[in-house]
Design a protein around this nucleic acid. Structure first.
Lengths: 210, 210
DNA sequence: GTCTATAAATGGATAGAC
DNA sequence: GTCTATCCATTTATAGAC
């Protein structure tokens, strides 16, 4: 593997496990058993590494967001789709655990992240629209706005909440729990079928965790 | 005013406006037109200042959380109560905009914040319980759990979301919007009256924001 | 491409005079 | 209580040898 890629891989792992703030350029070099000088030959510094990592994240996320135009028409599809998004976020969790800090430090990334968030918002809107058309969901426009915000928030801060709460369990369980919480935001708007769908989800959730 | 209090007041203002991470001990001293040495005479460093500020926040918040045992029985009471909590959080917004960072740096504060969060959770649970008793709300226990999480999340990350989204408007409008979003989490569980209550809230919200 | 060595900058902290 | 002066530690960044 090329040195550049090794640096990115190791940095990502370090950031995810120990937190981005705790790692200096020298720490990264040490973890790679490489001199700081060499690290600086490949990347101008920690900033450049973080930007390169964000490039990767953004690229992947855009593919996911674009990949499902009009294909999500059932609650089950929706469930899977949420899973895919959350898995991707989890792979770059260092970024989401430090959002405020990072976006304040890199205004260019802040702008790009906002654009990505707007894209995500559009995807959620489309998705809710499709579910309404399939008569799975019943929402008036203002409530749809609010629900979109709620989903977007849940998808952005689940990792922060986990960090705050302390006891970290299995990543799979955390992602599963978060998907469940997102579905629970939608469930109350599913009318008659909503109650039973929620029951089924709860039951399913219980077999997964309890 | 005592020097100690001047330091706390100015630090809080600086942290809230410029972000905690951007301020060094020397910056704070400069803002107070005071030597760093003098600052260190009163506080062992930025750490001690932050801890003192957190003491204040925790004290106030505990009073608010305890202050309304069994007094919230209507949706309107609930609205006001949310307002009071969010105003208090806003006064110490630097803390909430940097939660991850700060709690990682001060494990003792992390522990205290978790305890406070648990207290808040209990308050929300009690509150939902009272609203159920008053026949305003209809929830089965698992859904109540989920709704509690949703409310707690909304109350914890509204400032982060505002920071990310960029264009900051009036603080009052932001708080108002957040209260509305929290009420919108509850509204779908209010049965027949829920729809009309939500309509009324939306109308009211619209008159407030334009 | 990779290393060693070192400079430059920053922020945290203290001693001692007033 | 407050100031000046200074020191220490950490991190970023570069020059030049191999």
């Amino acid at each position: 593997m090329k040195t550049r890629d090794r640096i990115l891989r190791t940095s990502l792992a370090l950031f995810n496990e120990e937190g981005e703030a705790a790692q200096s350029a020298v720490d990264i070099a040490n973890a790679l058993e490489m001199s700081p000088g060499n690290l600086y030959y490949h990347f101008k510094g920690k900033d450049a590494i973080i930007r390169a990592l964000y490039d990767g994240f953004e690229h992947e996320m855009r593919i996911i967001l674009r990949g499902t135009r009009g294909k999500i028409t059932s609650i089950e599809d929706n469930w899977i789709y949420n899973y895919i998004i959350l898995e991707e976020i989890f792979d770059f969790r260092f970024f989401y655990r430090n959002l405020g800090e990072l976006l304040a430090r890199y205004p260019d990334l802040a702008m790009r992240f906002r654009t990505l968030l707007a894209q995500k918002r559009r995807t959620i809107t489309d998705l809710l629209h499709d579910l309404k058309k399939s008569n799975v969901l019943f929402l008036d426009p203002p409530m749809q706005e609010v629900l979109t915000d709620q989903i977007l928030s849940a998808m952005t801060f689940w990792l922060s909440m986990d960090l705050i709460e302390g006891q970290h369990g299995e990543p799979a369980a955390l992602i599963h729990k978060t998907v469940f919480q997102i579905m629970a935001l939608v469930a109350p708007h599913m009318g008659e079928s909503g109650f039973s769908a929620m029951q089924a989800m709860t039951a399913y959730y219980e077999t997964q965790t309890g």
